[in-house]
């Protein structure tokens, strides 16, 4: 195998490492929130710097490949997609940290509001993160398309949560309660943003596989059927 192909493999495998780490952080952030567990929360905060380090390593590897190999066609698309997916994953890591920051303030709340919905959105988001990683590893555009479709469900649950919390905030004069409601709202919003980033990853996978840019719904109809 040529050194270039080896390096492309290394790039892909580093991105998988990063993806696994982010998936783990997202998983722990959901647990920290719904199980009100501070140990999980601290784990996520510790892992954030590892994710940041990997982001820098991956960008460095990708820019070196561009400078030295001037990749074209699918190789070029892989390197470009890797750089973008790298950024998406790092942002997902940040959002997981944001979830656990809110989770830490909610740890001692006796009865967590919206707990069933939080668990539901948490599960959906984790599933999307894992699916996006799987679609990337297998370079499968069909799997990527399923992620795009799943995002609507996450948005719906997020809307349920915010409706309930807005009603609750409107009905109370208790500042502490409003603060807790806002913490839950921010956590739910962060989880929903993580799902949005998985859809961006899915779009990059479609670009990698088919060479078609489907962002913002452009050219979606030009994606070859399975």
């Amino acid at each position: 195998m040529r050194p270039f192909e080896e390096e492309l493999k290394v790039l892909k495998s580093k991105l998988q490492d990063m993806g696994s780490l982010v998936a783990h952080s997202v998983h722990k952030s959901v647990q920290a929130l719904v199980e009100q567990n501070s140990d999980y929360a601290h784990q996520v905060l510790r892992d954030e710097s590892r994710i940041n380090q990997l982001e820098i390593q991956i960008d460095d590897l990708a820019t070196t490949l561009i400078a030295r190999e001037q990749p074209v066609a699918r190789d070029m698309r892989l390197v470009v997609a890797a750089i973008k997916i790298n950024g998406e994953l790092e942002r997902m890591g940040d959002l997981a940290a944001l979830v656990v920051e809110r989770a830490l303030s909610l740890v001692r709340v006796p009865q967590l509001k919206c707990s069933a919905s939080l668990e539901k959105i948490g599960n959906l988001v984790q599933q999307m993160v894992l699916q996006s990683l799987d679609a990337f590893v297998t370079e499968d555009a069909e799997k990527a398309n399923l992620i795009l479709a799943a995002d609507n469900e996450v948005d719906a649950v997020r809307n349920e949560i915010s409706d309930e919390l807005v009603r609750s905030m409107a009905a109370t004069n208790d500042v502490d309660e409003v603060e807790r409601d806002l913490d839950i709202l921010i956590a739910a919003r962060s989880l929903e943003r993580i799902a949005d980033h998985t859809t961006n990853i899915a779009e990059e996978i479609i670009f990698l596989v088919h060479g078609v840019d489907v962002r913002h719904s452009f050219q979606r109809e030009t994606v070859p059927a399975a």
Partner: peptide, 10 residues
């Protein structure tokens, strides 16, 4: 150079 149609070209 971005997305050739034929495998041989790629």
């Amino acid at each position: 150079f971005k997305n050739p149609a034929k495998r041989e070209t790629e």
